[in-house]
Computed example of a mutant assay.
Amino acid sequence: MKIIVMSDSHNNYFSIEKVVKNFHGDLYIHLGDGERELNQICTKYPDKQFIHVTGNCDFASLSQDEILFCPDDKNCIFAVHGHKYGVKSSIEPLKKIARKKGANILLYGHTHARFNEYDDGLYTMNPGSISCPRDGNPPSFGIIDITPKGIVTRIIDL
């Protein structure tokens, strides 16, 4: 299974479309601050599967703040935007919550800075911002490949 992970598009429809159009995924996850343009993408690409959480700039959203789901019988993903978990200060509390929920993959956004690590059984990824990064890197998104042999996570420059 290939999962494409995006975050913080902030009204940049074209950045999301570029990823959806050029990178095949079995599932696309948006980690918030881009619900309006993601809704347009969902309408344009009804054959694609999208999951998203609400971000602090997704005003009047009815979407969930967090999602916990298992894409297969071995792995569980915990996805949040991150603003309610203090991720700009530290991700350690969020990692503890993810582990407590039984997740082995943690996805978050909000900081506009990419992060990708494996630590003691937990894959943690912030794909950075797909439109306005704050870490000196180009806009980016993440890819998670889940295979019978294991998990590979990577961040791709847009």
Rank of each mutant, 00 (worst) to 15 (best):
I4W: 00
V5T: 13
M6Q: 07
M6G: 02
S7K: 07
D8Q: 05
S9W: 01
N11Q: 13
N12M: 10
N12R: 15
S15N: 15
S15K: 15
E17A: 11
E17M: 11
V20K: 09
K21F: 04
K21G: 07
N22E: 15
H24G: 12
D26R: 04
D26S: 02
I29V: 13
H30L: 12
H30D: 03
L31S: 02
L31D: 00
G32K: 11
E35T: 14
R36H: 12
L38E: 03
N39M: 12
N39S: 14
Q40H: 07
C42H: 10
Y45E: 07
D47F: 10
Q49G: 03
I51V: 14
N56I: 11
A60N: 14
L62H: 15
L62N: 12
L68C: 12
L68P: 12
L68G: 11
L68I: 14
D72N: 00
K74L: 00
N75P: 00
N75V: 00
C76K: 15
I77K: 00
A79E: 01
G82F: 10
Y85A: 04
G86Y: 10
K88A: 07
S90V: 05
S90I: 00
S90Y: 04
I91P: 03
E92I: 14
P93M: 10
K95M: 14
K96R: 13
A98P: 06
K100L: 15
K101Q: 09
K101N: 10
G102Q: 04
N104G: 14
N104W: 00
N104E: 05
L106N: 00
L106K: 04
L107E: 02
Y108I: 01
G109R: 02
A113H: 09
F115C: 12
E117H: 08
Y118R: 06
D119P: 06
G121F: 04
L122C: 03
L122T: 02
Y123I: 00
T124V: 14
G128V: 04
S129C: 09
C132M: 15
C132P: 04
P133V: 08
R134M: 10
G136V: 06
N137G: 13
N137A: 14
S140N: 08
S140G: 12
G142H: 01
D145I: 02
D145C: 05
D145Y: 05
D145M: 07
I146A: 06
T147W: 03
K149V: 07
I151W: 02
V152G: 09
